[in-house]
């Protein structure tokens, strides 16, 4: 009995050890790959940050207004953000390699899927980022112009413009990734149309005097206005 037990135990142990011995190289190589991946990701982060600084990417982002928006969501330095994104992308890539090396099932497919998906994801991110910038930029511009021209309801107008652009960019971004393409498009079309109609009605009917004043200022600006002394 004891022998039997021992045998079973030894078989199990030896089996385990065998299995362990058989798996150990894979484990080791997985760990090595992970470690290398970590190093590569760190290097990548540095490189991307350096590149971003070199190309003045941060300043370009600031110019679009996205920089300021990123600041609001806690990203002080866009360069650093890009570095972090690069770090994680690199590390995830190596992690998938490591899984593959470990012979864990499905990892290969997962890696292939990720590789196919990555460009679309990147494109979507860029689209949303740009949309964010444009939205912010237009919001500010519309707000400033409307306030400068003493147009009533300036914040609403500006917010509408921002919402529209954001909506459009998110829709395009989602479309890129391929999530619910139909739904997103239809939804966007309906919303956009409704908002535009509302805006047109508001501007044309409700804000007739505003529209007229605006057009007068724009088109007939050279004509003197007796009631307005020159500030110059």
């Amino acid at each position: 009995m004891g022998e039997r037990l021992l045998e079973v135990l030894s078989t199990t142990v030896s089996g385990f050890i065998d299995a362990l011995l058989a798996f150990l190289p894979r484990l080791l190589s997985m760990l090595v790959i992970l470690f290398v991946g970590l190093l590569a990701a760190l290097v990548m982060q540095r490189v991307v940050r350096w590149l971003a600084r070199l190309l003045r990417l941060g300043r370009a982002l600031e110019r679009t207004g996205a920089g300021a928006a990123l600041q609001k969501v806690g990203v002080e330095k866009p360069d650093a953000l890009l570095g972090t994104v690069a770090l994680w992308l690199t590390f995830v890539g190596f992690a998938l390699l490591a899984l593959q090396a470990a012979g864990i099932g499905g990892a290969e497919t997962l890696a292939a899927d990720l590789m196919r998906f990555l460009p679309r994801l990147l494109a979507a991110m860029v689209v949303v980022l740009i949309g964010f910038g444009i939205a912010n930029f237009l919001w500010r511009l519309v707000l400033l112009a409307a306030v400068n021209m003493r147009i009533e309801g300036a914040p609403l107008l500006a917010a509408l413009v921002r919402a529209m652009v954001l909506l459009a960019s998110v829709a395009i971004g989602l479309d890129q990734i391929g999530i619910g393409a139909q739904v997103v498009q239809t939804g966007f079309a309906i919303t956009f149309g409704a908002v535009m109609l509302a805006g047109a009605l508001a501007f044309g009917l409700g804000g007739r005097h505003v529209a007229r004043r605006y057009l007068e200022e724009k088109l007939l600006a050279k004509k003197p206005r007796d009631d307005e002394p020159s500030h110059l």
């Binding site: 200022e217 600006a221 050279k222 003197p224 307005e228 002394p229 020159s230 500030h231 110059l232």
Partner: peptide, 17 residues
């Protein structure tokens, strides 16, 4: 000499100057 330029609306003059 500024007399001739009195007609520019404030918002535009302000933005320019």
């Amino acid at each position: 000499a500024h007399a001739a330029h009195a007609a520019v609306p404030l918002a535009r003059a302000f933005r320019q100057v």
